[in-house]
């Protein structure tokens, strides 16, 4: 079986995987980081979004072997100890969630979207989150949270 070497949330990780193992399965089942969710499994819902080398990607649509050598950040890697990431804090403050299932993916997409863009417009946020689906349809507060989170991140 292929071996993959990754940096996940700042820690070096080595794992044996089948070639067909998806990145999301490596993260959830072998690394035990279950904050990254699997929603649709058809590349549409965005519940599985993580950052690979700083860019938001759907971890259900990337092979674990493709991420070999990369730096991966999951929702568990955002907070600094007990201190939430500004985007997480903004989701809490603006109640940017209902059931919470889509939230990890929403937050990861939002952090990538807001990086370098503190003054996002509502239109940019809505377009930037096209790949993230909230089945509770709680988009209004999610958008408010991302706008506030982007400001708080300061670029």
């Amino acid at each position: 079986m292929p071996t993959v070497n990754l940096t996940v949330n700042g820690k070096a990780v080595s794992a044996n995987v089948e070639a067909r193992t998806l990145l999301v399965n490596l993260i959830r089942e072998q690394l035990g980081l279950t904050g990254t969710h699997v929603g649709c499994d058809t590349s549409q819902c965005g519940a599985c979004v993580v950052h690979v080398d700083g860019k938001s990607v759907k971890a259900c649509t990337m092979l674990a072997v493709q991420a070999n050598g990369s730096k991966v950040t999951t929702i568990e890697g955002l907070a600094n100890g007990d201190k939430l990431h500004p985007m997480q804090e903004a989701f809490r403050e603006h109640h940017g969630l209902q059931c919470g299932f889509c939230t990890p993916g929403m937050v990861m997409s939002a952090v990538c979207l807001a990086k370098g863009h503190p003054n996002l417009t509502e239109k940019e946020v809505r377009e930037g989150l096209e790949g993230n689906i909230c089945r509770c349809t709680g988009y209004h507060n999610i958008v408010q949270a991302v706008l506030a989170g982007a400001k708080a991140m300061g670029g």
Partner: peptide, 9 residues
């Protein structure tokens, strides 16, 4: 094309 995550790959 697609969405932001798809466009990254």
């Amino acid at each position: 094309i697609g969405d932001r995550q798809v466009r990254h790959c």
